[in-house]
Simulated scan of single mutants.
Amino acid sequence: MNSVIKGSGYCLAYTPGLMLQHGSTIVQERLVNPDGEFLKEMGKHVRSFEDCVAYWPNQVYIGNKTPEEFAKVEFPYFDKKVENAKRYGHFGEIMPENEFLLLAQACDCFEVFYLDKDFVAANKGELAKDPVITEAILARVQEGVENSVIKGFVDAHEAEPLFYEGKLVGCVKRAHDIDVNLSAEVMLENLMNKASSVLAVLHSLKSSNVDPLSIEYVIDCSEEACGDVNQRGGGNFAKAVAEIAGLVNATGADARGCC
Rank of each mutant, 00 (worst) to 15 (best):
N2A: 08
I5C: 07
K6Q: 07
K6T: 09
G7Q: 04
G9M: 05
G9T: 03
G9K: 08
T15K: 02
L18I: 10
M19W: 12
M19K: 12
H22R: 09
S24T: 11
T25E: 08
I26V: 10
Q28M: 07
E29N: 08
P34R: 04
G36L: 09
L39W: 05
M42E: 08
K44Q: 13
R47D: 05
R47P: 00
F49V: 01
E50D: 14
C52Q: 13
C52M: 15
V53M: 01
Y55M: 06
V60C: 14
Y61D: 04
N64C: 09
K65H: 11
E68M: 11
E68K: 10
E69H: 04
E69Y: 04
F70M: 15
E74Y: 00
E74A: 10
F78M: 12
F78K: 15
D79P: 00
K81Y: 08
K81S: 14
V82I: 15
A85C: 07
A85F: 06
R87E: 15
Y88P: 03
G89I: 01
G92A: 12
P96G: 04
N98T: 00
L102W: 03
L103R: 05
L103K: 05
A104E: 02
C109N: 14
Y114W: 11
Y114T: 03
K117E: 12
A122W: 00
E126Y: 12
D130Y: 04
P131Q: 05
I133V: 15
T134G: 03
A139Y: 03
E143M: 07
V145Y: 15
E146D: 15
K151E: 14
F153H: 14
F153R: 10
V154W: 09
D155R: 08
A156L: 10
H157G: 06
L168Y: 00
R174D: 02
H176K: 11
V180G: 07
V180W: 13
L182E: 05
S183K: 06
V186P: 00
V186A: 13
E189Q: 11
M192F: 14
M192N: 10
V198F: 02
V201A: 15
H203K: 11
H203L: 01
S204T: 13
S208T: 01
S208G: 06
L213N: 13
S214W: 03
D220K: 04
D220H: 15
D220Y: 14
S222P: 04
C226L: 10
G227F: 03
G227E: 00
V229A: 14
R232V: 15
N236Q: 09
A245R: 13
G246P: 08
L247R: 09
L247W: 11
N249M: 09
A255E: 08
R256Q: 12
C259M: 05
